[in-house]
């Protein structure tokens, strides 16, 4: 196999990995916030429900969750699956799993906000929605960026779990080439791809962190 062919195959896998990564963040970051708010809600039922959800998501392997999300509709409900669902099952499972981790990070951030910020805003007449969106959330985001960065980096590496339901992302491609070509080169190339990916993500997160450093 020519090196260029290998790179283009790995590139295709990379596109899948990047799509999984991007879409997971796109869905799990807002979902995590909703879960965090439900977790802190005054409604006891909602609170216990989200507590169970978070503990299940964090207490079981992501690979198992992938299998459940993908094969669950068939085995539990008898719905025949279409292959186009594979990719979406990955996105659903990843988003729902990461939302649980993000929810706890958000919650920690929100609970760390001093009561004085709420009181100052209330006295000034801000509505509860305004208080959350204008006063609390921006400060929470600054506080939780380092923890979010950790999860985001973990997510890059977790994308390789997608192959447990046959979504061929980069690492799977690297393995397949390694076994057909009897070579380690594809692993090395995949390693470089991952490193560059991580490097870009770390750079972006660092830039965000710096941008938020205009205040303390």
């Amino acid at each position: 196999m020519r090196f260029s062919v290998m790179l283009s195959k790995l590139g295709e896998g990379m596109v899948t990995s990047v799509l999984i990564f991007t879409l997971t963040l796109l869905f799990s970051l807002p979902l995590g916030l909703i879960v965090a708010l439900a977790r802190m809600s005054k409604n006891g039922l909602l609170r216990s429900f989200t507590r169970i959800y978070i503990s299940v998501m964090r207490g079981t392997p992501l690979m198992l969750q992938l299998l459940v999300v993908y094969f669950g509709p068939y085995y539990l409900l008898g719905i025949p699956l279409s292959s186009g669902y594979r990719f979406w099952a990955v996105i659903i499972a990843f988003s729902v799993n990461y939302a649980a981790y993000f929810a706890e990070i958000y919650r920690g951030g929100i609970e760390s906000m001093p009561a004085g910020q709420y009181e100052a805003a209330r006295v000034l007449g801000y509505s509860e929605t305004q208080i959350f969106l204008k006063i609390i959330l921006p400060q929470v985001i600054k506080r939780i960026i380092p923890s979010i960065t950790n999860e985001v980096i973990t997510l890059i590496k977790d994308t390789s779990l997608a192959f447990s339901i046959a979504v061929t992302e980069m690492f799977t491609v690297a393995k397949a080439i390694a076994s057909s070509e009897k070579t380690m080169v594809s692993y090395a190339a995949a390693g470089v791809f991952y490193y560059v990916f991580n490097f870009i993500v770390a750079f972006v997160m660092e830039t965000i962190e710096k941008k938020l450093n205009y205040y303390r």
Partner: peptide, 14 residues
């Protein structure tokens, strides 16, 4: 199983 040459795998042309 795409890791299973010569029965099924990624060929020279990718």
């Amino acid at each position: 199983d795409q890791d299973f040459p010569p029965y099924g795998y990624i060929g020279e042309d990718g």
